[in-house]
């Protein structure tokens, strides 16, 4: 039987691949003396379909999946090896072989280490971006340009007098030598006799203020003798101490706290929350305030203010009221304030 099957092969190949499949099946069937109907009933198919399969009329047969199945079943019925026939059918009709699993090589189970690294890196990148954004945001705080515009003249006509001693080199540099400013910062501050002589300076017009600087500086060494016991480290500490009205310095300066230089006072007429920070991050006033509270700001100006309800706060700088409505947007006021730059 197999000999016949092989001898058939070259002859059927020359007449095309299609008849070879059906031809081989038909030859094997005839070789066993089986008729078409018998095979059809054993395959549970209609004789017409088996005939079409043997004749290679695939257009009369259903989809390829069925044809392949019929070929396999037919070959099995005749004890033939179905694989060469199936392969011949595939090559004849261009049916692709089912894709073999392309299973990948070993990945160690501990594959998640890389994931952790990537996660850490992305967290670092996000944090960096957030920091840069915060920097940019602080650079253009919403209240500042408005305030500068409103107090444009004041900025030009700033007086060195009301500035704190550390600010003075900047404000009054035009008229004072470096030596003078040094003397002023070291000796003038602890003494805090300045309030007395600066009192007129604060209200004086600009030219007078400029002229008043040299006398202030020359007066400093003289007054330095009095507060000699005070440690030199006092200047930075002074702002923090100043809110307490009972501090010896303010007491010495005068009975009214409002008379202290650059003193910024917040008085509350109603409940509101505030967030006030100074530029040196040494002072902050945050939280909810109630009616009747009064706070004196310490730290290093300029201050950054956020006031929840501007209408219930009265802000005064050196005793002079500061109009919060000018900087408030709706209820909330956000702005930067440098008392030294106010007239």
């Amino acid at each position: 039987m197999t000999a016949q099957y092989h001898s058939d092969h070259p002859e059927t190949d020359s007449s095309g691949p299609d008849p070879s499949i059906g031809g081989r099946l038909r030859a094997a069937r005839l070789d066993r003396g089986l008729d078409l109907e018998r095979i059809a009933s054993q395959l549970h198919l209609q004789p017409g379909l088996v005939d079409a399969l043997e004749a290679g009329r695939y257009q009369e047969l259903p989809d390829p999946v069925f044809i392949l199945g019929y070929i396999r079943n037919y070959a099995r019925l005749l004890d033939l090896d179905p694989e060469p026939l199936v392969a011949a059918y595939r090559s004849a009709t261009g049916q692709p072989l089912p894709a073999r699993p392309r299973v990948q090589g070993g990945v160690p189970p501990e594959h998640r280490g890389g994931g952790v690294l990537v996660r850490l890196t992305s967290v670092a990148v996000v944090a960096g971006l957030a920091y840069l954004f915060a920097q940019w945001w602080q650079g253009q705080a919403p209240g500042q340009p408005e305030l500068n515009g409103a107090a444009g003249v004041a900025v030009e006509a700033q007086s060195p007098g009301p500035a704190r001693d550390l600010d003075r080199p900047r404000a009054g540099a035009a008229s004072s030598t470096p030596a003078n400013t040094q003397a002023g910062t070291q000796a003038g501050t602890p003494a805090d006799t300045a309030p007395a002589r600066r009192e007129p300076v604060a209200v004086a017009p600009v030219p007078t203020a400029l002229a008043a600087v040299p006398p202030a500086d020359t007066a400093a060494p003289a007054t330095a003798a009095a507060p000699a016991p005070e440690p030199p480290a006092e200047p930075p500490a002074e702002p923090q101490a100043s809110p307490e009205p009972g501090s010896p310095q303010t007491a010495a300066a005068g009975p009214a706290a409002a008379s202290q230089p650059d003193e910024v006072v917040l008085e509350f007429h109603g409940p509101t929350w505030v967030d006030v920070r100074d530029s040196a991050k040494s002072f902050s006033l945050t939280g909810s305030m109630t009616k009747g509270d009064r706070r004196v700001l310490g730290g290093t100006p300029p201050y950054t203010f956020v006031i929840g309800k501007a209408s219930s706060v009265a802000l005064s700088v050196r005793g002079a009221p500061f109009d919060l409505n000018r900087v408030a947007k709706g209820n909330v006021a956000r702005f930067k304030l440098d008392p030294a730059k106010l007239p």
Binding site: H44, L45, V65, F66, L68, G69, Y70, N73, P98, P101
Partner: peptide, 25 residues
Amino acid sequence: VDRLIEDETGLPVVVADDPLTCVAR
């Protein structure tokens, strides 16, 4: 198993190509 179903139902039964991967494909 195809012959069993064929025998029990009297209908032609064919096994698909590479039956294990049929659902995934």
